[in-house]
Design a binder for these strands. Structure first.
Length: 710
RNA sequence: GCGCGCGUAGCUCAGUUGGUUAGAGCGUUCGGUUUACACCCGAAAGGUCCUUGGUUCAAAUCCAAGCGCGCGCACCA
């Protein structure tokens, strides 16, 4: 038992100390790297949200990035891995609100200023936890350049970007039906919605035709309560059944308003009765129909998801009003029938509340030209997305894009650099400027007030590759090389970085985008904090060590989504131990030797020749695999080589060879050489143990394995 | 509904352009105190490669249909 403990590798001893030494060395910073390194290699870290702690998805994401960074550092590149965290507007506001709710406080009671203070407190607390987690994993990011998306300098850049778009007339303000989350009290872009299939009913309602007795048109709807805001009934122009009704008027039950029957291509003859109630205020499509036919907009549901004051159902939740309205339609004879129906409702991607489309004054970014730029960048291979299948997802979204709703009505975020005149024109006149104008250029007398809206979080993270770097840095470190992330933010973030880079820097921000799989639970469910299925990587690092954790992650990261399997970590731990012990053996043989960068001997025996050949092949394969983002394959290749070819075969043969005077020296040379090469090859994957062994190699003319020559 | 991906050992997964006895990790069984390592070594068991049909001298691999799972997209009220 005692014997066992002595020979097993203990990661805890080495990891903390080594990480401190690496940080002190300054080599995470490209400006401090030794030697003549000309070619830069830059990776932009996908910004973790400051909403809490990291889970295994982040561990995967960052391990892969660390592999390419460490690999390219060994390859002699000037490597910069640019780290930071995202203020994550809605997400962070939501978690802080939840915390407050536990104490029975709402943000409205607190007021905007003290609430934002509270969020900053949260950020300061959790931001550090995140960095600590990443460091424990062995991440070699340049912490001297770390940025938060609400740092003052970053905020300035965000304003400039907004103003730039505004001056090009790409940013505009308009009242439109937008996706609105009544719980969060804000608009959302379509990428921030999730869809859920729900069982509901399709209600058939009769709208009497004006001036004709017992003659009506039946519409089918899933949302009877919005009928209060109907301003037309629409049918397909080719629908013969309704040919004679088009142009007539119908009487809207309950309200007794008269509304026209119109013909619009949008309507599907086959669905329901082929006649649709048109509620421009509460449906994105109806809004479009309304625009085409100049229909009025009658809001029924307010920003809190309740019925507007103007109606007798005022203040009721829309679901409750629905029941009342159906009852009334039934009692007044307008109800025809109902059918079971499954439709998808959109929900808020943060809080899960059902989205209400409501008309609202918002700011938009015209996407026509920007989307085209982003599409061209990928079509022309300026940006290469791996695996290729994600190109389609990217191009599809950009090809059918709507203008981007960039304003949000939450409190945590970048306030728009928009200043409203309090004087004439009911506060509808504004100027756009970085600083608040001293005197109002509109009325010359009022104290201008900044817009209370904040920008979509993704508006600020879209400029991450250049907004967080100094002017000097931008000359040296833009554009970057590689972006590694998960598919869920390909459009939300990656696409937007690409057009932002083109718009502001005239160059795409990176050449390669690699999309890795998503980590799922063993049962195949999504790993997420809110589901309680997320796992903190520190738990594994503590139990298996950082290297074994990284090994286990990469071992499983074959490209498909990963059903998390902890046994891969114990394989990693065993492998670390194997390396440790094989190295102890080799170190024992080469103690009196001097450090050799090159192999200073020629292979003698057939075993010598074989192991050198296998080493060369392994190294070549791994280069190819890392450069094509096949990380798991690379690691498995090395695993087989080291464990089987080197340990099982060559190490055993070497014991015999070293007994013969003729071969002793050459064998030791080869052991030394193969070990050193192995350490280099493995270092990107398992940085701590390889560095620890490297530090034990004889001779003092060496610094860190981290900056060795590949 | 359309599109994409997946279905291979008990579990989690590899399997490049079709080519001998289909592999790995973990687990299981048997045997080992070999002086780097029991977190090890040696050996073994375990597979209708989802189903059916087709192409081929040859199919886990190519084609078609079906079943199951996952994801993306979608204005069907």
């Amino acid at each position: 038992m005692e014997h066992k403990e002595k020979t097993a590798y203990d990661p805890k001893e080495t990891e903390r100390e080594l990480y401190e030494r690496w940080e002190e060395s300054g080599f995470f910073n490209p400006d401090h790297l030794p030697g003549k390194r000309k070619e830069p290699y830059i990776v932009y870290m996908p910004l973790p949200n400051v909403t809490g702690t990291l889970h295994m998805g982040h561990a995967l994401d960052n391990t892969l990035q660390d592999i390419v960074i460490r690999y390219n550092r060994l390859k002699g590149k000037k490597t910069l891995w640019f780290p930071g965290t995202d203020h994550a507007g809605i997400a962070t506001q939501y978690v802080v609100e939840k915390e407050l709710k536990k104490k029975g406080i709402s943000r409205f009671e607190m007021g905007r200023e003290s609430f934002i203070e509270k969020v900053w407190e949260w950020k300061n607390q959790y931001g550090d936890i995140i960095y600590n987690q990443l460091k424990k994993l062995g991440i070699s990011a340049d912490w001297s350049r770390v940025r938060f998306t609400m740092d003052p300098g970053y905020a300035e850049e965000v304003k400039k970007v907004f103003i730039h778009y505004y001056e090009k007339s790409l940013v505009y303000r308009d009242k439109r039906v937008v996706n609105w989350c009544p719980r969060c009290g804000t608009s959302l872009s379509e990428l921030e919605l999730e869809y859920e299939n729900r069982k509901t009913k399709l209600w058939y309602i009769r709208y009497p035709i004006e001036g004709e007795k017992n003659y009506y048109i039946t519409v089918a709807t899933t949302r009877p309560e919005t009928m209060l805001g109907d301003t037309a009934v629409a049918v397909n122009p080719k629908d013969k059944r309704y040919k004679d009704i088009v142009g007539k008027k119908v009487i809207l039950p309950i309200t007794n308003r008269t509304i026209p029957v119109i013909a619009d291509e949008f309507v599907d003859k086959e669905f329901g009765t082929g006649a649709v109630k048109v509620t421009p205020a509460h449906d994105l499509n109806d809004f479009e129909i309304g625009k085409r036919h100049h229909l009025p907009l009658i809001p029924v549901i307010n920003e809190r998801g309740k019925i507007e004051e103007a109606f007798e159902y005022k203040g009721m939740k829309s679901e409750d009003a629905r029941i009342k309205i159906i009852e009334r339609l039934k009692s007044e004879g307008y109800w025809e029938k109902e059918e079971d129906y499954e439709n998808h409702v959109s929900t808020c991607y943060r809080c899960g509340h059902v989205i209400e489309p409501i008309p609202s004054m918002q700011w938009f970014l015209n996407m026509d030209g920007l989307a085209k730029k982003a599409i061209d960048a990928v079509r022309s291979k300026d940006v290469i997305i791996t695996p290729k299948k994600f190109e389609k997802m990217y191009i599809d979204w950009l090809s059918h894009i709507h203008d981007w709703t960039i304003s949000r009505q939450i409190w945590w975020g970048h306030q728009l650099p928009v200043w409203f005149c309090g004087g004439k024109n009911n506060g509808e006149s504004f100027v756009v400027a970085v600083e608040k104008p001293q005197t109002c250029p509109i009325c010359k007398e009022c104290n201008m007030e900044q817009s209370t809206d904040v920008l979509d979080t993704w508006f600020s993270s879209a400029i991450w590759p250049f907004a967080g770097l100094s002017r000097d840095d931008l000359k040296k470190y833009y554009p970057g090389n590689t972006l590694i992330t998960a598919r869920d933010i390909l459009n939300l973030w990656v696409a937007r970085m690409i057009f932002s880079g083109l718009e502001f820097m005239n160059r795409v921000p990176f050449r390669n985008v690699f999309i890795h799989g998503t980590i799922l639970t063993k049962e195949g469910r999504r790993m997420s904090k809110s589901l309680g299925t997320g796992i903190d990587p520190l738990i594994y690092i503590d139990q298996y060590g950082a290297d074994a954790t990284r090994f286990g992650i990469v071992w499983q990261a074959t490209g498909q989504d990963i059903k998390w399997d902890e046994s891969a970590l114990s394989a990693g731990k065993k492998f670390a131990n194997k390396i440790w012990n094989a190295s102890r053996f080799v170190l024992g043989q080469i103690q009196d030797m001097t450090f050799q960068k090159e192999m200073n001997t020629r292979p003698q025996t057939s075993a010598d020749k074989k192991i050198i050949k296998q080493l060369e092949k392994t190294k070549k394969d791994i280069e190819k695999d890392i450069e094509s983002f096949k990380f798991s394959k690379a690691l498995r290749g090395f695993y087989d080589f080291f464990w089987h070819d080197f340990c099982d075969v060559y190490l055993e043969i070497s014991k015999e060879q070293m007994k013969s005077e003729e071969n002793e020296k050459e064998t030791k040379n080869i052991l030394f050489f193969v070990l050193l090469e192995s350490l280099k090859i493995l270092h990107p994957f398992m940085p701590f143990i390889t560095e620890a062994i490297y530090q034990k190699l004889p001779e003092k003319e060496k610094e860190y394995l981290m900056i060795e020559t590949w």
